[in-house]
Design a protein around this nucleic acid. Structure first.
Length: 769
DNA sequence: AACGCGGACATTTGC
DNA sequence: TGTCCGCGTT
C-alpha cells in the first residue's frame, strides 16, 4: 500500500487505526480529507466490501469529490458501492426503504424550509394567533430545535421546563403549533429536513430489527465535520456503531460554525466519553497556508475560551502579511477589491479561479458583483437564491410533487390556482377547511367533493373538477412515463410558465431558460439511469433533487472565474487569494450575536474559517458606511480585526480602529440602536437623556392628522413625552395617550421599530426613569 | 375572483 | 431593498 507513504506520521496512524473508535482532531488545512479518503481506500484494501462502509459528509459536493478521489485509488467499480453522502441524503434513502414501518410511503415529499414556513403560517392563522408574536421564523426554529433534540410534540408537552419557558416568553401555544405541524406533515406524507434525522431515530428506536440490519450492514462508519453534528445525528451514529464501535470521526472544534442549525460542539469535545477506549489523533501541520496566515488565524482563535488547545503550524514560506483595506463606502469596497483582483491577475499572474471573495451575508454579493462586472472580472456566485428556489422552478416542481404525492398540501396550495383558473382564496380556504374537518388531505376532498360536502357552487365545483382531472391524467403516468416525458408534458399542458410568454422581457426569457434547464437536468438524469438499465421515474428525480444545494448544481467548475460565496459556504475550500469583505461591527460579527459570548465565539470561529481558506494572500476589508435594509448606516471596523496579532497585519493608520466620533456631521446625531439577539432594542450609547426626534417627518404628520375620535386624556397612567420599555419593541417615547373605542391607547415612537398604537390593558409597558 | 396598490416588515449562516 | 399581506377596486 504505497499510498500510505504520502502521509505524515500522525495522518498515517489515524488511517491505520481501524480496530475501534477514533477521533481525528484536524486543524485547518491539515489534510483531513486526505486522511478520510486514504482511510477508506485502506479499509477497502483490507478487504472490506464497499457497501459495508458508511461515510457521512457535510455536503453532497464533499461526498462526490471524495468518492471521485477514492475511485482513482481503488477503481470506479468499487467506489460506487460506498454509502457516502450527507446525513440527510443517506438517511432519506434509508427512510424511503423503510417508509412503511413509520407510516409513510416510499414517495414521501421532503418539505423545504419555505414549505415548512408556509405550513406554520397557515397553522398560526387557523389558530387565530397573533402572527407578530408567533412569527414563522421563530416558530420554525423552535420546532427545529425540538426535533434536533429528539423532543416529540408529546415530550414537549410533558416537559415542564419547555412549557414554562414558553409561558414566560408569552408564546404558550408553541407546543400546540408543533403538534399540529407534525400531524399535518404526516397527513401530507411529507418530512421536513429535521424529520429525516428525527424519523431515522424513531425508526431505529421502534424497530430493533431494522436497526440491527443496518448495524450489521455497516461494518465501518466515518463521519466528516463531526463538530457540526447535532444531537439527532450524534445518536444515529452512536446507535449504528454500537455493535462494533468501528467508527472514525473527523473534525475541528475551531471550525464549528453551525450551532444555529442545532450543531452541538460537545459532540466532538465529549467524544471520548461516548466511546471509551477511543483513540485520539491530532493533525496539526497545516499544508495549505503560509506561516503568516496560520499564525494570524491562531492568534485570532486564541481569543476563544471554549476550545481544544492545539498547535497548528505551517512549514511553508513566511508569506505576506494580511492586508487590511479600509474604505468609505460599500461601493468603494467593491471597486478596491476588484482593483486588487485585477492586479493579482495581470501583475502577479494569478488565475481568477484562484481568488475568492467571502462575505458574511448573501445580500452583500450584489454590490460586489457590480464592481466586478464594471472591471470585466468574471465571477461566479454560490448560494443566495439557488436554482431550485426560483419561482418558476418551484412552480414546475410543485406540479411534479403533487403528481407524485397527491397529499402534498403545500404543493397543491401553490399551484391550484396557478396559472389562474378561477379558484380563488375563498374556494381554497373552503377546500382546506373541509379537508381538516374530515382529517383528510385536500386532494382526497377534491377526488370526492360530494362525499365530503364541499360547500361550493356548481361553477366552482366544475373548475375544481377540471383541475383535478388534469392532475389525474399525470398521476396515471407516474409509473408508465419516465421522469423527463412526464415533466415535459406537465410543463406543456398545465401552462405553468404560460405567463412568461406574454412578452419577451429579459426576466421572462430567463424564466423560460431556467425551466428548459430544469427539463434538461431531468433528461440527463433519465439518461444516466438508463445506462444502468433502469428507468427513472419522476418520484426518483424529486427525491434526488430535494436535498441539493446550489453548489451541487454547478456545472462549469473549471471556468476561470472569481468565486463569491458566504464564509459558511466556503468551509472546506481553499483559494490562493482570499478577500474577506464587510469586516464591520454588526455585520461580522452579526448584530444578532454580540449579546452572547457563545454566539460571539462562533462568529470568531467563522472568521477563523474565512482566514484559513487562504493559501498565500489574505485581504480583509471594511467600509465606514454601508447601504443596508434600505438605508445607509455608518459602521466601525470589526472587533475581530483587533483580535489578530498586529505583527501579521498590514494595516492602515491606527486611528481607523477608533470608534468614529462625530466625524460624519448630522448623521451621527441619531441614536445608535442595535438589536441584541432577543430582538430587543437597546441603545449602544449611554441611555438617552433627552427626547429623540422621531425618525421620519412622515410619521409625525400621520400622528397629527390622526382620527378625530381620539380624545387625549391628560392624566393617563402612562406619561406623555416619557420613555417606556416594551417587551418586543424596546424603548420608545410616548407621543400621545387617548381613548379609542372606549379603550385606553398610547401612541409610542419606538424609533426604528416605528410608531405603534398600543392598547394599555394589553401592552406591558415599563416606564423608564 | 383578479388585479393593483401601498404599507409593514424583515433582512445570518443552510441541509 | 424586496417580499408579503391585506385592502379596495373592477
Amino acid at each position: 500500500m504505497d499510498f500510505l507513504n504520502e502521509l505524515n506520521e500522525n495522518q498515517r496512524r489515524a488511517v491505520e487505526y481501524i480496530d475501534g473508535a477514533s477521533l481525528v482532531i484536524a486543524g485547518a488545512g491539515s489534510g483531513k480529507t486526505r486522511v478520510l479518503t486514504y482511510k477508506i481506500a485502506y479499509l477497502l484494501k483490507k478487504g472490506l466490501a464497499p457497501s459495508s462502509i458508511l461515510a457521512l459528509t457535510f455536503t453532497n459536493k464533499a461526498a462526490r469529490e471524495m468518492k471521485a478521489r477514492i475511485a482513482t485509488m481503488v477503481g470506479e467499480r468499487t467506489a460506487r458501492y460506498l454509502w457516502m453522502g450527507t446525513f440527510h441524503s443517506v438517511f432519506s434513502r434509508i427512510l424511503r426503504n423503510e417508509a412503511d414501518k413509520i407510516g409513510y410511503t416510499k414517495n414521501f415529499t421532503i418539505y423545504d424550509s419555505s414549505d415548512s414556513n408556509s405550513l406554520i403560517k397557515a397553522i398560526v392563522k387557523e389558530l387565530k394567533l397573533d402572527e407578530k408574536v408567533y412569527k414563522h421564523g421563530f416558530v420554525h426554529s423552535r420546532i427545529s430545535f425540538a426535533k434536533n433534540n429528539l423532543i416529540t410534540p408529546e415530550a414537549y408537552l410533558g416537559n415542564p421546563d419547555l412549557m414554562k419557558a414558553d409561558m414566560n416568553a408569552r408564546v404558550p401555544m408553541l407546543s400546540d403549533i408543533y403538534k399540529i405541524y407534525c400531524d399535518r406533515c404526516k397527513q401530507a406524507d411529507a418530512m421536513d429536513f429535521d424529520d429525516l434525522l428525527l424519523k431515522t431515530n424513531v425508526l431505529f428506536r421502534n424497530h430493533p430489527d431494522v436497526l440491527q440490519k443496518y448495524q450489521q450492514a455497516f461494518s465501518y462508519i466515518l463521519v466528516d465535520e463531526y463538530q457540526d453534528t447535532n444531537f439527532a445525528q450524534y445518536l444515529i451514529v452512536k446507535k449504528l456503531a454500537e455493535l462494533h464501535e468501528r467508527i472514525c470521526v473527523v473534525g475541528d472544534d475551531a471550525q464549528s460554525i453551525y450551532s444555529f442549525r442545532g450543531a452541538n460542539i460537545d459532540n466532538i469535545l465529549q467524544f471520548k466519553n461516548s466511546y471509551h477506549n477511543a483513540q485520539i489523533f491530532k493533525l496539526e501541520q497545516n499544508y495549505r497556508s503560509t506561516q503568516t496566515i496560520v499564525n494570524a488565524a491562531n492568534s485570532l482563535i486564541d481569543k476563544n475560551a471554549a476550545q481544544i488547545r492545539k498547535n497548528v503550524f505551517s512549514e511553508k514560506e513566511t508569506g505576506k502579511p494580511i492586508k487590511i483595506l479600509s474604505v468609505f463606502t460599500d461601493l468603494e469596497e467593491g471597486t478596491v477589491v476588484a482593483q486588487n483582483i485585477s492586479n493579482l491577475r495581470y501583475n502577479e499572474k494569478f488565475n481568477f479561479q484562484q481568488v475568492a471573495i467571502l462575505y458574511r451575508t448573501n445580500s452583500q454579493s450584489r454590490i460586489l458583483e457590480e464592481a466586478l462586472r464594471k472591471q470585466g472580472i468574471p465571477y461566479r456566485i454560490y448560494g443566495g437564491l439557488s436554482f431550485y428556489q426560483r419561482k418558476e422552478i418551484k412552480d414546475v416542481i410543485a406540479y411534479c410533487r403533487l403528481v407524485c404525492n397527491p397529499n402534498d398540501e403545500e404543493a397543491l396550495k401553490r399551484i391550484i390556482n396557478y396559472p389562474a383558473r378561477g379558484i380563488g382564496d375563498t374556494t381554497v380556504n373552503k377546500l382546506v377547511e373541509c379537508a381538516q374537518l374530515h382529517a383528510v388531505s385536500s386532494w382526497e376532498v377534491l377526488a370526492d367533493m360530494l362525499r365530503y360536502n364541499l360547500p361550493v357552487n356548481a361553477g366552482t365545483a366544475n373548475k375544481l373538477a377540471q383541475f383535478r382531472d388534469m392532475i389525474r391524467v399525470f398521476m396515471a403516468q407516474v409509473t408508465t412515463q419516465n421522469a423527463y416525458d412526464l415533466a415535459n408534458s406537465i410543463v406543456k399542458i398545465t401552462g405553468v410558465i404560460s405567463d412568461t410568454f406574454v412578452d419577451r422581457s429579459p426576466e421572462n426569457l430567463s424564466k423560460q431558460e431556467n425551466v428548459q434547464e430544469l427539463l434538461k437536468a431531468i433528461h440527463e438524469y433519465c439518461e444516466t439511469r438508463e445506462k444502468e438499465n433502469e428507468t427513472a421515474f419522476l418520484p426518483d428525480f424529486l427525491s434526488e433533487i430535494s436535498l441539493l444545494t446550489d453548489q451541487d448544481t454547478d456545472k462549469e467548475t473549471d471556468a476561470d472565474k472569481v468565486t463569491m460565496m458566504t464564509v459558511h459556504a466556503a468551509k472546506g475550500l481553499e483559494f490562493k487569494a482570499v478577500f474577506i469583505v464587510g469586516m464591520e461591527e454588526d455585520l461580522f460579527p452579526s448584530a444578532y450575536t454580540v449579546g452572547s459570548e457563545r454566539e460571539l465565539e462562533e462568529e470568531r470561529r467563522l472568521f477563523y474559517v474565512a482566514i484559513t481558506r487562504a493559501e498565500e494572500l489574505c485581504f480583509i476589508s471594511y467600509s465606514k458606511s454601508r447601504f443596508r435594509n434600505g438605508k445607509t448606516n455608518f459602521s466601525n471596523p470589526s472587533r475581530f480585526i483587533k483580535d489578530i496579532d498586529p505583527q501579521y497585519l498590514d494595516s492602515p493608520k491606527e486611528k481607523d480602529f477608533e470608534p468614529r466620533q462625530n466625524r460624519f456631521s448630522d448623521w451621527d446625531d441619531d441614536l445608535e440602536i442595535e438589536r441584541n439577539r432577543f430582538g430587543k432594542t437597546i441603545y449602544s450609547k449611554p441611555a438617552p437623556t433627552e427626547p429623540f426626534v422621531p425618525q421620519t417627518l412622515k410619521r409625525l404628520v400621520k400622528i397629527e392628522n390622526g382620527s378625530n375620535e381620539k380624545v387625549t386624556i391628560p392624566n393617563g397612567s402612562i406619561p406623555v413625552d416619557k420613555f417606556v420599555k416594551h417587551a418586543a419593541f424596546g424603548i420608545g417615547k410616548v407621543l400621545n395617550v387617548y381613548i379609542d373605542n372606549g379603550n385606553e391607547k398610547a401612541e409610542i415612537d419606538f424609533g426604528e421599530k416605528g410608531v405603534k398604537s398600543l392598547l394599555l390593558k394589553f401592552a406591558k409597558l415599563e416606564v423608564m426613569e
